[in-house]
Protein backbone atom coordinates (compact mmCIF):
# COMPACT_ATOMS: atom_id res chain seq x y z
CA UNK A 1 0.00 0.00 0.00
CA UNK A 2 1.41 3.34 -0.92
CA UNK A 3 1.56 6.48 1.14
CA UNK A 4 -1.17 8.12 -0.88
CA UNK A 5 -3.46 5.21 -0.19
CA UNK A 6 -3.41 5.93 3.48
CA UNK A 7 -4.23 9.56 2.97
CA UNK A 8 -7.07 8.51 0.68
CA UNK A 9 -8.70 6.54 3.41
CA UNK A 10 -7.93 9.25 5.90
CA UNK A 11 -9.79 11.73 3.78
CA UNK A 12 -12.70 9.40 3.37
CA UNK A 13 -13.05 8.95 7.09
CA UNK A 14 -12.50 12.58 7.92
CA UNK A 15 -15.19 13.58 5.53
CA UNK A 16 -17.64 11.00 6.82
CA UNK A 17 -16.91 11.45 10.49
CA UNK A 18 -15.37 14.85 11.12
CA UNK A 19 -15.72 14.60 14.87
CA UNK A 20 -14.67 11.02 15.47
CA UNK A 21 -11.54 10.29 17.37
CA UNK A 22 -9.45 8.21 14.99
CA UNK A 23 -5.92 7.09 15.62
CA UNK A 24 -3.80 6.06 12.66
CA UNK A 25 -0.74 3.88 12.86
CA UNK A 26 1.46 1.95 10.52
CA UNK A 27 3.63 -1.13 10.74
CA UNK A 28 5.63 -2.49 7.80
CA UNK A 29 3.38 -0.69 5.37
CA UNK A 30 0.18 -2.01 6.87
CA UNK A 31 -2.11 0.82 7.86
CA UNK A 32 -4.36 0.62 10.84
CA UNK A 33 -6.96 2.86 12.29
CA UNK A 34 -8.36 2.65 15.81
CA UNK A 35 -11.90 3.84 16.11
CA UNK A 36 -14.25 4.06 19.06
CA UNK A 37 -16.77 1.26 19.19
CA UNK A 38 -19.68 3.67 18.88
CA UNK A 39 -18.48 4.87 15.47
CA UNK A 40 -17.72 1.47 14.01
CA UNK A 41 -20.73 1.13 11.73
CA UNK A 42 -20.28 4.61 10.33
CA UNK A 43 -16.59 3.97 9.68
CA UNK A 44 -17.15 0.62 8.02
CA UNK A 45 -19.98 1.93 5.90
CA UNK A 46 -17.92 4.92 4.77
CA UNK A 47 -15.02 2.66 3.87
CA UNK A 48 -17.24 0.19 2.04
CA UNK A 49 -18.74 3.00 0.01
CA UNK A 50 -15.29 4.29 -0.78
CA UNK A 51 -14.22 0.99 -2.30
CA UNK A 52 -13.41 -1.51 0.42
CA UNK A 53 -15.63 -4.15 -1.06
CA UNK A 54 -14.43 -7.18 0.82
CA UNK A 55 -14.27 -7.94 4.50
CA UNK A 56 -11.22 -10.10 4.41
CA UNK A 57 -11.34 -11.17 8.02
CA UNK A 58 -12.93 -10.24 11.29
CA UNK A 59 -11.45 -11.36 14.53
CA UNK A 60 -10.85 -10.40 18.11
CA UNK A 61 -7.97 -10.36 20.55
CA UNK A 62 -8.20 -10.73 24.30
CA UNK A 63 -5.80 -8.18 25.73
CA UNK A 64 -5.99 -9.44 29.30
CA UNK A 65 -2.30 -10.33 29.52
CA UNK A 66 -0.99 -7.95 26.91
CA UNK A 67 1.67 -5.71 28.44
CA UNK A 68 0.46 -2.15 28.74
CA UNK A 69 -3.03 -2.75 27.43
CA UNK A 70 -5.84 -0.76 28.94
CA UNK A 71 -8.80 -2.38 27.23
CA UNK A 72 -9.95 -5.95 27.50
CA UNK A 73 -10.97 -6.89 23.96
CA UNK A 74 -9.96 -5.68 20.57
CA UNK A 75 -12.13 -6.38 17.55
CA UNK A 76 -10.22 -6.33 14.30
CA UNK A 77 -11.64 -5.84 10.81
CA UNK A 78 -9.32 -6.52 7.90
CA UNK A 79 -10.65 -4.77 4.84
CA UNK A 80 -9.63 -5.25 1.27
CA UNK A 81 -10.28 -3.48 -1.97
CA UNK A 82 -10.40 -6.26 -4.52
CA UNK A 83 -9.69 -4.05 -7.52
CA UNK A 84 -6.75 -2.04 -6.26
CA UNK A 85 -5.51 -4.55 -3.70
CA UNK A 86 -5.32 -1.98 -0.91
CA UNK A 87 -5.79 -3.19 2.60
CA UNK A 88 -6.77 -1.44 5.78
CA UNK A 89 -7.11 -2.71 9.31
CA UNK A 90 -9.81 -1.21 11.49
CA UNK A 91 -9.62 -1.88 15.20
CA UNK A 92 -11.92 -1.07 18.02
CA UNK A 93 -11.87 -1.80 21.72
CA UNK A 94 -14.46 -3.21 24.08
CA UNK A 95 -14.57 -3.64 27.80
CA UNK A 96 -16.54 -5.76 30.18
CA UNK A 97 -19.38 -5.76 31.06
CA UNK A 98 -20.51 -4.02 27.90
CA UNK A 99 -19.40 -6.56 25.30
CA UNK A 100 -21.68 -5.41 22.56
CA UNK A 101 -20.97 -4.06 19.14
CA UNK A 102 -23.21 -3.52 16.14
CA UNK A 103 -23.06 -6.22 13.53
CA UNK A 104 -21.34 -5.72 10.18
CA UNK A 105 -23.58 -8.19 8.36
CA UNK A 106 -25.67 -5.45 6.74
CA UNK A 107 -22.46 -4.01 5.28
CA UNK A 108 -20.79 -7.24 4.08
CA UNK A 109 -22.82 -10.39 4.42
CA UNK A 110 -19.57 -12.31 4.61
CA UNK A 111 -19.31 -11.11 8.21
CA UNK A 112 -22.01 -13.57 9.20
CA UNK A 113 -19.98 -16.57 10.29
CA UNK A 114 -16.98 -14.52 11.30
CA UNK A 115 -19.03 -12.70 13.89
CA UNK A 116 -20.55 -15.88 15.15
CA UNK A 117 -17.09 -17.32 15.54
CA UNK A 118 -15.92 -14.33 17.51
CA UNK A 119 -18.90 -14.71 19.80
CA UNK A 120 -18.16 -18.39 20.17
CA UNK A 121 -14.58 -17.80 21.15
CA UNK A 122 -14.76 -14.53 23.09
CA UNK A 123 -18.36 -13.92 24.02
CA UNK A 124 -18.60 -10.61 22.19
CA UNK A 125 -22.20 -9.98 21.16
CA UNK A 126 -22.89 -8.55 17.73
CA UNK A 127 -26.17 -6.72 17.81
CA UNK A 128 -28.43 -6.92 14.82
CA UNK A 129 -26.96 -10.16 13.52
CA UNK A 130 -29.68 -12.17 11.75
CA UNK A 131 -28.86 -15.60 13.16
CA UNK A 132 -26.82 -15.18 16.27
CA UNK A 133 -25.66 -18.31 18.06
CA UNK A 134 -22.58 -20.38 18.61
CA UNK A 135 -20.81 -21.51 15.46
CA UNK A 136 -18.15 -24.06 16.34
CA UNK A 137 -18.75 -25.30 19.83
CA UNK A 138 -21.76 -27.21 21.06
CA UNK A 139 -24.68 -25.10 22.22
CA UNK A 140 -24.30 -26.51 25.71
CA UNK A 141 -20.74 -25.28 26.08
CA UNK A 142 -20.60 -22.60 28.71
CA UNK A 143 -17.22 -20.88 28.46
CA UNK A 144 -15.51 -18.82 25.82
CA UNK A 145 -12.34 -20.77 25.16
CA UNK A 146 -10.14 -18.19 23.47
CA UNK A 147 -10.25 -15.85 26.44
CA UNK A 148 -6.95 -15.72 28.19
CA UNK A 149 -8.41 -16.85 31.50
CA UNK A 150 -9.62 -20.10 30.02
CA UNK A 151 -7.05 -22.91 30.35
CA UNK A 152 -5.67 -24.55 27.21
CA UNK A 153 -6.72 -27.97 28.42
CA UNK A 154 -10.19 -26.83 29.26
CA UNK A 155 -12.17 -27.32 32.40
CA UNK A 156 -12.86 -31.02 31.96
CA UNK A 157 -15.56 -30.73 29.33
CA UNK A 158 -13.69 -33.10 27.10
CA UNK A 159 -14.03 -35.87 29.69
CA UNK A 160 -17.69 -35.34 30.32
CA UNK A 161 -19.26 -38.05 28.20
CA UNK A 162 -20.83 -41.40 28.91
CA UNK A 163 -18.61 -44.43 28.43
CA UNK A 164 -19.62 -47.34 26.26
CA UNK A 165 -18.01 -50.66 27.13
CA UNK A 166 -17.94 -53.87 25.16
CA UNK A 167 -20.75 -55.34 27.17
CA UNK A 168 -23.04 -52.44 26.44
CA UNK A 169 -22.47 -52.19 22.75
Amino acid sequence: MTESAESDWKQVLEKALPSANLRWSEFRNQHRVDVPASAIVAVLTALRDAGMDQLCDLTAVDLLEYPGATDRFEVVYLLLNTTSGQRLTVRTHLNEPDLKIPSAVPIWFGADWLEREVYDMYGIVFEGHPNFKRLLLPEAFESFPMRKDYPVKGRGERHNFPIITRAES
Binding site: L137, P145, Y150, P151, V152, K153, G154, R155, E157, R158, H159, F161, P162, I163, I164, T165, R166, S169
Partner: peptide, 15 residues
Protein backbone atom coordinates in the same frame (compact mmCIF):
# COMPACT_ATOMS: atom_id res chain seq x y z
CA UNK B 1 -3.94 -31.60 20.31
CA UNK B 2 -3.96 -31.52 24.06
CA UNK B 3 -6.65 -28.86 24.07
CA UNK B 4 -10.03 -28.19 25.54
CA UNK B 5 -11.93 -29.55 22.57
CA UNK B 6 -10.20 -32.79 21.65
CA UNK B 7 -11.06 -36.08 23.28
CA UNK B 8 -7.84 -37.57 24.60
CA UNK B 9 -8.23 -40.97 23.04
CA UNK B 10 -11.43 -42.53 21.78
CA UNK B 11 -10.81 -45.60 23.91
CA UNK B 12 -12.04 -43.63 26.86
CA UNK B 13 -15.51 -43.74 25.44
CA UNK B 14 -15.77 -46.71 23.09
CA UNK B 15 -13.93 -50.04 22.94
Amino acid sequence: FDTYAVVQGIDRFIP
